[in-house]
Design a binder for these strands. Structure first.
Length: 467
RNA sequence: GGCGACAUAGCCAAGCGGUAAGGCAGGGGUCUGCAAAACCCCGAUUCCCCGGUUCGAAUCCGGGUGUCGCCUCCA
């Protein structure tokens, strides 16, 4: 298995520190608003990485933080005349709603910055003791010039960074590149006690501290959005490696940018979408499929038109599942014919292709194309006379591989328990037998309004739910 | 100024030295009471342009052109 490492800018053979365990840290959201589709891409992609690692038999310790204290949260609390804690709690809850809908599995641990203040303080003490940090008026800064490898992840030259510096001007810093580990309290802001006075942690410090606490001093994979490479991840490396003198992470993974209507997504342009507003109109799995149909490191463009394309594609996959489930219900168990044995071989080959695609730096686009080929082959070769065993084999494989991508086709559920609906379907079948097309069509329309689509096939009526 | 990415059919998008995957949209057909789903057939003599390396290049090298990103809070 190979994956692209931002640090070395090459695809490397993946070998975790411990044989079958992967310690993985993903930078999570700052909880001051609903997550947007840029966030969603990162979380969907790394959730898929995790799922595939688990599929391959690794135990994945997956940690994703919540930044629950920060300027944006403070501002929002002010605007709404409430507390920072309330804002954070609320949007953590909303995060889980969106993440669950998108099929993003819960992390092993979801640590929050404000619950690790003591650990953060201890960590800063180490940095001060080792001479990497200095205190000015209750603020503590990391002295970037002291860390010789500063810039190694983002491949930036520290002198040029300074030369081009549009970096914020802060008289307290020795150097514009230095960054805050601890921020002294400003009037009206929440604060915690520390050896340097009341204040709150800087942004970068929480990830260094919490990743180490839950996963150890050297991670296998550290991942996040592309805009975190510099300065966030660069700063994390500086802090952690300065403190512990060992590599902070073996592999660094970053996704590509997501643009909206060919423009950079930004609030000033007002061109960003939240996950919430999209999932009100689209099946969340459509969004998930959309994100995975391109390679995770490529920049992608988002638009509603493109999402509609993904929706059609998704329906093809989900229809294949409906059709297979229907066949499972109506086929009989019997020995496989020679042709059917050949099909088993063919599907085993598909599975192999899927794995090869994923093994090559998580090429989900290629993996998905295999799913489409599986759907086509199944549709073309299976029918009511097929062996049930065969149909089940294919369905199970299709669902298992889809699950690696986080696609469960929840809405392709074919079970219907509602007595009334079952009765209407019966009634319509009877009407059709009597060639009472008017009544049959009425019932079909009526059920459609209730989200049930009926399809008449040579092997009887088939139904599915739609949103 | 520094660093980097990308340019493949109407749209989206894989492929990264061996002769163009897949999806969407479109056209034609089969099946069907109708509908839906599905299946079959049709599309780039060609991968931004120009050179070069090679038996062979979308894939490697050089040079253009064009888009975009990072260097500032941001996934």
């Amino acid at each position: 298995m190979r994956l692209y490492n931002t640090m070395t800018r090459t695809k490397e053979e993946f070998k975790p520190l411990k044989d079958k365990v992967v310690n993985m840290y993903v930078c999570g959201p700052t909880v001051y608003n609903y997550i947007h589709i840029g966030n969603a891409r990162a979380f969907i992609v790394f959730d898929t990485v995790r799922r595939y690692l688990e599929y391959k038999g690794y135990t994945v310790n997956y940690v994703q933080n919540f930044t629950d204290i920060d300027d944006k949260i403070i501002n929002r609390a002010k605007e709404e005349n409430t507390t920072e804690k309330e804002i954070a709690e609320r949007f953590i809850e909303e995060y889980f709603k969106d993440a669950d809908a998108l099929g993003i599995k819960r992390a092993t641990v979801h640590p929050r910055a404000t619950e690790h203040i003591d650990d953060i303080i201890e960590f800063i003490k180490i940095l001060i003791d080792k001479g990497y940090a200095y205190v000015v008026d209750g603020n503590v800064y990391f002295e970037t010039a002291k860390f010789k490898d500063y810039g190694k992840l983002s491949h930036k030259n520290i002198d040029e960074l300074m030369a081009g510096a549009r970096v914020e001007i802060d008289e307290k810093k020795k150097n514009p590149l230095d960054f805050a580990l601890w921020k002294a309290q400003k009037p009206g802001e929440p604060a915690w006690d520390s050896p340097w006075g009341k204040g709150r942690p800087g942004w970068h410090i929480e990830c260094s501290v919490m990743s180490t606490k839950y996963l150890g001093k050297t991670l296998d994979i550290h991942a996040g959005g592309p805009d975190l490479i510099f300065p966030h991840h660069e700063n994390e490396i500086a802090q952690s490696e300065a403190a512990y003198d060992q590599p902070f992470s073996k592999y660094w993974m970053h996704i590509g940018y997501l643009n909206v209507n060919n423009e950079k997504m930004s609030k000033s342009k007002g061109n960003f979408f939240t996950v919430r507003e999209l999932t009100e109109k689209y099946d969340p799995e459509v969004l998930r499929l959309f994100m995975l149909m391109a390679h995770y490191r490529s920049p992608i463009n988002f638009s509603l038109d493109l999402l509609d394309q993904a929706k059609s594609a998704y329906e093809r996959l989900s229809n294949a599942v409906v059709n297979l489930k229907h066949l499972v219900n109506i086929t009989k168990d019997r020995e496989l014919s020679d042709e059917e044995k050949d099909l088993i071989v063919k599907f085993d080959e598909y599975k192999k292709q899927f794995e090869e695609a994923m093994d090559d730096d998580f090429n989900t686009a290629d993996a998905i194309s295999v799913l489409f080929e599986m759907a086509k082959t199944a549709n073309a070769n299976l029918n009511g006379n097929s062996s049930k065993k065969l149909v089940e084999y294919i369905l199970e494989m299709f669902l298992k591989l889809s699950d690696v991508l986080g696609l469960s086709y929840k809405n392709a559920e074919t079970e219907i328990e509602d007595e009334e609906i079952l009765r209407l379907i019966e009634e319509r079948q009877k009407a059709r037998k009597e060639k009472n097309w008017k009544l049959a069509d009425e019932i079909r329309d009526k059920l459609k309004e209730r989200g049930i689509i009926l399809e008449d096939t040579p092997e009887g009526v088939r139904w599915k739910r739609i949103r």
